[in-house]
């Protein structure tokens, strides 16, 4: 029923509309997406772009590290299962290169152990593939908010 859709505020899509407006009003979030599945990276980049997120694609761990060396990112999304390197190793390197950048891990089913290990090494959160975009957005926003907060405290502390 298309008629009733507008009258009700609070449906998921409308909430997203509101979020979207909020997202559009500020500078785009710079996100590093590391996953060896090109099809996945492509479609994710497109979808994230609609939410004012600018995605940089990396198809392997080493490529991700190279990109991180060249430029800063607000947040990184890292698939734990990559062809060339162990996801946890990449996470460790990321955290060493930029301790303040939140890293959200993507894992397959049945690899909760790896997720827990990742959290111990400083990952911000994890998501199990396949996932709803909303879930990922929520975690990205959380991560950004957390980062801003810590940046502020750091600035106060450094002053």
């Amino acid at each position: 029923m298309p008629g009733s859709k507008k009258s009700r505020i609070g449906t998921p899509s409308e909430k997203m509309e509101l979020e979207k407006e909020k997202e559009c009003s500020r500078a785009p979030i710079r996100l590093l997406l590391v996953d060896d599945e090109k099809g996945f990276v492509d479609v994710m980049s497109k979808r994230l772009a609609r939410h004012n997120i600018q995605t940089t694609q990396a198809f392997s761990g080493s490529e991700g590290i190279r990109l991180l060396k060249r430029s800063d990112f607000d947040v990184a999304v890292l698939d734990l299962k990559l062809g060339d390197m162990d996801g946890i190793e990449i996470l460790k390197i990321f955290k060493k290169m930029d301790p303040h950048m939140p890293v959200i891990m993507l894992t397959g089913h049945g690899s909760q152990k790896a997720s827990v290990e990742g959290m111990q090494y400083g990952a911000f959160d994890y998501l199990t593939k396949p996932h709803e975009l909303a879930g990922l957005m929520e975690k990205i926003n959380d991560a950004i908010r957390r980062r801003e907060k810590t940046d502020d405290t750091n600035e106060i502390a450094s002053r």
Partner: peptide, 8 residues
């Protein structure tokens, strides 16, 4: 992986 792609 393919499932995630299809989904997305």
């Amino acid at each position: 992986n393919p499932v995630a792609i299809m989904f997305e």
